[in-house]
Lab assay of single mutants.
Amino acid sequence: TLFEALYDYEARTEDDLSFHKGEKFQILNSSEGDWWEVRSLTTGETGYIPSPYLA
């Protein structure tokens, strides 16, 4: 399933992933509550992002 970022986000820890509004992601793991592990389709990087920032 693909999701798109609604807002920009700046990583706060080394496990987080910074991203920009409009960036698209593949969800790798959504079992961690509000923090999902994703792969950016723009950069190929993986990390955790806050799920409320996605649509």
Rank of each mutant, 00 (worst) to 15 (best):
P52Y: 15
T46P: 00
R39L: 10
D34P: 07
S18Y: 05
L54W: 09
D16G: 15
E23C: 06
G33Y: 09
A5D: 15
L17R: 15
E14K: 11
E32F: 15
P50R: 11
D8E: 07
F25P: 15
D15M: 13
P52Q: 15
F3M: 07
Y48T: 05
Y9A: 01
T1L: 13
Q26Y: 13
R39N: 01
L28S: 01
W35V: 07
E4S: 04
S40G: 03
E14D: 11
G44T: 01
W36D: 00
T46C: 07
L17F: 12
Q26L: 13
F25W: 02
F19R: 01
K24A: 05
S30I: 11
W36M: 12
N29Y: 05
F3N: 09
R39H: 02
Y48M: 11
L2W: 12
Y9M: 03
K24Q: 09
F25A: 13
Y53Q: 06
Y48G: 00
L17Q: 02
S51P: 07
L41C: 11
N29E: 04
E45T: 14
G44C: 08
Y48D: 01
G44W: 03
I27M: 03
T46R: 09
T43Q: 02
E4M: 11
K21W: 04
P52T: 15
I49V: 14
G33K: 09
Y9R: 03
A5L: 07
A11Q: 08
G44R: 00
E37W: 15
E45D: 07
S31F: 08
H20F: 12
F3C: 09
E14V: 10
L54T: 06
G47N: 01
I49P: 00
T46M: 06
G22T: 02
F19S: 02
L41W: 06
T13R: 14
E32D: 13
T46Q: 11
W35G: 01
K21T: 10
G22A: 02
L28R: 14
L28M: 05
T46L: 13
E23N: 15
N29T: 06
D34W: 13
G22N: 02
P52M: 15
Y53E: 04
S31W: 09
D16Q: 15
I49N: 01
L6R: 07
T13W: 13
S18C: 06
W36L: 05
D8F: 04
S30W: 11
Y53P: 03
K24N: 03
R39I: 07
L41F: 06
P50I: 04
F3R: 08
G44L: 12
T1Q: 12
R39P: 00
S31A: 10
T46Y: 05
L2T: 09
K21D: 02
G33A: 12
T42K: 11
E23W: 14
Y53R: 05
K21Y: 05
Y7E: 05
I27W: 03
L54G: 07
N29I: 13
K24C: 11
T46K: 11
A5Q: 01
E4Y: 15
G22F: 09
S30E: 07
I49E: 00
E10H: 09
T43F: 13
N29H: 11
K21Q: 06
T42F: 08
W36E: 01
S18E: 03
T1M: 13
D34Q: 09
T13S: 12
W36T: 02
F3S: 01
H20Y: 11
V38C: 03
T13L: 10
Y9T: 01
R12Q: 13
Y9F: 06
E45N: 10
V38R: 00
K24W: 15
K24R: 10
F25Y: 14
E14L: 10
E4F: 12
W36C: 03
E10A: 08
L41S: 02
D16R: 14
D8L: 05
W35C: 09
D16N: 10
L17N: 00
R12P: 10
F3Y: 12
A11T: 03
D34A: 09
S30Y: 14
E4C: 13
D16P: 02
T1R: 12
S51R: 10
A11I: 02
L41H: 04
F25D: 00
Y9V: 02
S30F: 11
G44E: 02
K24D: 00
E45G: 06
Y7A: 07
P50A: 06
G44K: 01
E14G: 12
S31R: 10
E10Y: 09
R39D: 00
Y9Q: 02
T43N: 04
K24T: 07
S51C: 10
K24E: 03
L41Q: 04
L2R: 04
L2G: 12
W35P: 02
E45I: 09
S51D: 03
T43V: 00
G22S: 02
D16I: 12
G47M: 07
F3A: 05
V38K: 00
